[in-house]
């Protein structure tokens, strides 16, 4: 489900410079609306899929958010009552807090680790085997990865806790304690996506021309300042892509929670999408669930917008 949005593309990495190059060129031969007919032909199949399986369901979902609907009956229009109830729903605010916590940990951890790995790969190991090994977790389905870790991290019979005990440290209730539950979820996700994200950043690193580094070394820049002054700014388009996609994907965390803690302990992992699922499908309050989903959508749109604006994702400092 969520894998779709978690697949950032390497192709974007050099999107910025291209765009500006195009901007400079008067598109004499592609002017006006002259291509409309042919464009419609090109876009028709995708449009059909878009309208049928994305647009209409979304509009329908928005409509349902103003109704009381149990899936098995008919929807009944109740105006904005679902939204009023959400504003006063402590579980919604809790879900919002828990989700934000997850997003934050996930982003910091995943981006930092992936960036570090990418630099390591770039500097010492370019072999496909290393990259392949780091990519392996990504080949495992989300649900399976969650179950595997659920079992390995088990307090009583999990191998990880066994190892921890052998080192003389106390066992950790990874999923059971309220402090650990969300970080654990984020760690699992980081495990699965770290290598993949590193590979993307790695591609971005490779795109930086050596002449830039050579210039820096002539200036006598130190390694660390080279990193901050040159590498990082030049990586911006890739990093922005990675961040935007990871943040959006993280907000939609669902499968790992659903197959492991199911919202608990108490409400520690009742993240937004799981709460939506619980209300809509378990408790068959589809109207309320839809209203929650609309809010999640608005949050995502806002976050994406702010990120694009504040990080100036479309431009790279290479120009």
């Amino acid at each position: 489900m969520t894998t779709l949005t978690k697949q950032p593309g390497p192709g974007l990495s050099a999107g910025g410079p291209q765009k500006s190059r195009r901007r400079g060129k008067p598109a004499a031969d592609f002017r006006g609306t002259g291509d409309l007919k042919i464009a419609l032909l090109f876009i028709a199949p995708a449009m059909l899929g878009f309208v049928l399986f994305y647009l209409v369901p979304t509009i329908r979902g928005i409509y349902l958010s103003f109704t009381e609907y149990s899936i098995l009956g008919d929807p009944e229009w109740i105006g904005t009552r679902n939204y009023e109830r959400i504003a006063k729903d402590p579980l919604f605010w809790n879900a919002l807090g828990v989700t934000s916590q997850y997003v934050l940990i996930n982003i910091v951890l995943q981006t930092a680790l992936a960036l570090g790995l990418a630099i390591l790969m770039h500097r010492v190991a370019k072999s496909t085997i290393v990259r392949g090994a780091l990519l392996m977790p990504y080949l495992m389905a989300n649900v399976i990865a969650a179950l595997l870790w659920f079992w390995m991290l088990d307090y009583q019979i999990g191998i990880v806790n066994q190892l921890i005990e052998w080192t003389g440290l106390p066992r950790v209730a990874f999923f059971g304690s309220e402090q650990w539950a969300i970080p654990t979820q984020a760690l699992i996700n980081t495990w699965r996506h770290m290598g993949y994200t590193a590979l993307l950043i790695f591609a971005g690193l490779q795109a930086i021309p050596h002449s830039v580094y050579e210039a820096a070394s002539i200036d006598g820049s130190k390694a660390i300042s080279t990193f901050w002054r040159i590498t990082l700014p030049l990586l911006r388009p890739v990093l922005v892509l990675v961040l935007v996609v990871t943040v959006i994907g993280s907000f939609q965390v669902f499968d790992t929670v659903a197959v492991t803690t199911a919202g608990g302990p108490v409400n520690a992992t009742r993240v937004l999408q799981f709460y939506i699922y619980q209300r809509a499908f378990n408790e068959q309050d589809f109207g309320y669930g839809s209203a929650l989903a609309v809010i999640l959508f608005l949050i995502l749109a806002l976050v994406a917008f702010i990120q694009m604006k504040s990080l100036r994702g479309n431009q790279s400092d290479l120009d």
């Binding site: 969520t2 002017r31 291509d35 876009i43 878009f50 979902g61 589809f286 989903a293 995502l300």
Partner: peptide
């Protein structure tokens, strides 16, 4: 291709990445 409304339609396409999948599953 150059056509009217291109960027608008593309933004709409992009926005679908933000729709929670659970939202569209039932419809």
């Amino acid at each position: 291709l150059r056509w009217k409304g291109r960027d608008g339609v593309f933004s709409l396409f992009l926005a679908t990445m933000l729709v929670p999948p659970i939202f569209t599953a039932l419809p």
